[in-house]
Every structure is written in structure tokens, then in C-alpha cells.
Design a binder for these strands. Structure first.
Lengths: 238, 238
DNA sequence: CAGTGGTCTAGACCACTAT
DNA sequence: TAGTGGTCTAGACCACTGT
């Protein structure tokens, strides 16, 4: 729980201290010390304590009741959906990820992909099709589209690992956020075979547009997930 | 854009002022005035300006670059997924929502539903099955499970409107957040008929557990959405 | 280097909850 | 009414970005 980042600032240290308190025996709905008590005890201002508690509240470790106090939250059933790579995602789910490259190539962006990547329809696109596996069984068939002019030589590299890592280390492109559309479909026979399921089985369709640190679109990816092996968990609030 | 809530506090007024600035002609990636300029101009402290900007940053109206400035963000493709009722959701998508109640009744919770609602498997459950329509066409078949002891008389009421409104006005239960699992399936013939599509069509399966203001589970609902009429948009960040 | 956002202080008063 | 979190002030210094 204690990030290295937590020690960079006072609020991070306050945060770590409160997390330790929670982990060391407090139960859900137990009352935490007041903000003023934390401030006195730790020798910081109340605003700094509030900053730490705001972060913990956002992550659902605590909840507040105005006029009453701050309390330990119930653990959520599962983690909120986050922007993780397939690799990280599978490791977190306790499975061993691997990848098989189906084919790669370049092509014109076309209207649909071009608009998603803010490129001309005539722009050159690098396309990568991969099957992602968990514990050796196919889970997902993904087709990645990238602006070819921004990833020279990418298609000649080893593409079985995390694409995000490659983009960051080789091309200085850091992913900051993504917009996803999640829908459902039934699998065409050819796609079903790649995923090792019967034709016309149910699948989740995920279309993802990834944005980098400069607010520019990086990739547009369409993924088909086997419905029997995958679902999304989302935590939303009013 | 200008909520009534925005005028309750200074930071809300600051927020409205900045939103108006953005809407009145600023383009994405245009630089906003500095935090200190806003503070001087509006006669508030810089912390108050930061509070307003934090909220706008969280909603992706602006983004900050440390050492450089605060900028207008690009409009996102679509709204982030939020905890809205079907009714609100459809109105926002520009469609007219309606509801047809298929059947209602009471039953034992059983292991699966009981655990989702933190109830004994022998507890009494109120079950409501409804088809939700948009512009007259079926979109979703939902089965709601509620702790019967907390919603006396609910099943005798008019159930074609927003259940959340009914829970709030009649039972003092305010929904604060929800955990959702999104998967895919193909429709059984009986369900397909209720949704007016061919048997074995693709559908999204959404299992939702709603939590109230006291962190107690309120409802557990399983919904089947027609894949040809519905998808989820999600904005995620690193 | 000047200017920006990021963090922090030591107070103050308000709004809400319990008793 | 006492105690809590919510908001706000008027400063200060730090970390980072540009020129």
C-alpha cells in the first residue's frame, strides 16, 4: 500500500500513516480520528490532512459524514476499471499472460480509423493483430491501429510484450488516458477459430482510443474478448 | 452548464465563471488565465481558484501542465459512464424512455442474490422484471432484486417510472454508488422475444449492485441490453 | 531567469450531526 | 450545545517550464 510517492510530500506521509492505521486492525465503519487530531498528532496543518483524506476517499478507503466523522469504508468487491495493459491486467487477476502475433502490416487509415486518430483518411497506418492469452488459453483478439509516421520501425520489433511499454521506451509516448466503448457481438467463424471457441459465440467488443501526455490520440484498437473468460468491473458514483 | 449548486459557494461561482470563459469562444488547448490572475480578478484566494480548477480538471474541461499553465481540454468523444437511471440515460441520448412491467413477485434470496445484498439466503426478496424501451423499441430487460423488508408495499405501486426516484421519495433510500460487471451473452429465445430480436442475438449482461448513502446494498439487478441498440462509453485514466 | 502550477501553513467561520 | 467535516483566507516556499 505504501507507495514510494507517498514519502515525497507531507500529505503522502499522512496518507501512509492513515492507511497503516486502517490496515492494523480497524474494521469497516470504524470511526477514524478527527482531522484536527491527525493534524496535531502529525504536526501538519489540517489542510494537509484533508488532502490526504481526499485521496483516500476517492479510492474508497474511507468515507466521510459531514458533522459526524470519517470512517473506514467497506472493501469494494473488486477493483475499479483502470487503464492497464492486458499484461498488467492478467497478472493482477492471477493469470499468466502471453501473446501471439497474427499479422502486421501498413494500410491507409480510411475514414473511420482516421477520424479516431485525428489523421487524414490517406495517412499511413501501422496495423497489428494479436491474440492475447491467459494461462495459455486465448482471451482476446485485438487489432491495433497506429499513426505509422510516429512509430517508425515498430512493426519490425518484437511485438509479443506490452505495446505501452514499447511506445514509452522507444518513442517517448506516454499514455495518459483512454476512451472506451464496450458493446457485444457474436463471433465470425474466422475470429472464433482464433479464439478457440465455437462460431457465433458471444463476445465483448471494446473499441479503445488512447490519448498521450500531450492530449494527442495514440492508438485506436478494436478488441474482441471471449465472453466466457472475461468481463469488466466498474465502480460508478452519483 | 451552470448548476444551481454552483452558486452555493465561492468556488462554485469561480467555476461557473471559468466555464463561461471556456464556452465563450475559447478553443481546445488555449491557455487560461493563471490561478493568481483568477484570484485577483474575482477577489478570492488562490486556494479557492484551485478548488474550482480541480473540479474542472476532474471533469476533463481543463488540463494543467506544471510550470506552464492551465489549458482548455478537448471535448471527450462522449460522456463518461455515470450512475444514472435508465430514464435519465435515455433522455440524455435524445430518446423517449418508457417501461413495461413483465412480472413482479417475492421469493427467497438464495445464495447468489443474498450475498450480493448482504442478506441471509432465506431472506424475502422483492423481484421486478421490466422491459425498458427507447422511442418505443425494447432496449433492455432488467430483473431487480430488493430486500423486501425495506420496501414494504413497493410491488403494489406504479413501477413504470424511475425506481431510484421511488426509493428516495417513499423509502428515504438515496443511491450513492454502484458496482457493475459488464459481460456479453447470447439471448435465450424467451428473452429474445421480450426484446423483439432474433433468438441467440448478442446482448450485454450488466449485473449491478447499488449502494445507498449509509454504505448498505440496496438492489441487485441483472440487465440484458440489446447489443445493436446499446453500448457503454467509459473514460479511464492512468 | 521569470512565471507557472504544486504543496503547505495557521488560522477563521459555516453547515451539519449528534446528544 | 459541542464536535465534526466543509469552505475559505493570505500568505509562503518548492518544482517545473519556458526563454
Amino acid at each position: 500500500m505504501s507507495d514510494a510517492r507517498n514519502t515525497d510530500h507531507k500529505s503522502g506521509r499522512v496518507r501512509s500513516h492513515i492507511e497503516r492505521l486502517i490496515d492494523d486492525g480497524l474494521q469497516p465503519h470504524d470511526k477514524l480520528p478527527t482531522e484536527r487530531q491527525f493534524a496535531d498528532e502529525l504536526g501538519v496543518s489540517r489542510m494537509t490532512v484533508r488532502h490526504a483524506l481526499n485521496a483516500l476517499e476517492e479510492e474508497r478507503r474511507v468515507y466521510r459524514v459531514h458533522g459526524s466523522g470519517t470512517f473506514v469504508a467497506e472493501p469494494t468487491i473488486d477493483k475499479t476499471i483502470r487503464l492497464t495493459s492486458f499484461t498488467e491486467d492478467m497478472i493482477e487477476r492471477g493469470m499468466k499472460p502471453s501473446t501471439r502475433v497474427v499479422d502486421v502490416g501498413t494500410e491507409f487509415a480510411g475514414a473511420a480509423v482516421g477520424s479516431k486518430l485525428s489523421l487524414s483518411p490517406a495517412a499511413e497506418i501501422a496495423r497489428i493483430r494479436r491474440v492475447r492469452l491467459a494461462d495459455g488459453a486465448p482471451v482476446c483478439l485485438e487489432t491495433v491501429h497506429l499513426d505509422a509516421s510516429r512509430v517508425h520501425g515498430l512493426l519490425d520489433r518484437e511485438l509479443t510484450g506490452s505495446l505501452y511499454d514499447l511506445l514509452a521506451s522507444r518513442y517517448g509516448t506516454v499514455v495518459s488516458r483512454a476512451e472506451q466503448r464496450i458493446g457485444a457481438t457474436v463471433l465470425e467463424p474466422a475470429d472464433a477459430e482464433l479464439l478457440d471457441v465455437a462460431a457465433f459465440s458471444a463476445a465483448l467488443v471494446v473499441e479503445r482510443r488512447t490519448i498521450d501526455q500531450h492530449q494527442r490520440p495514440v492508438e485506436f484498437t478494436r478488441s474482441l474478448y471471449r465472453a466466457d473468460r472475461y468481463s469488466f468491473l466498474i465502480d460508478i458514483e452519483r
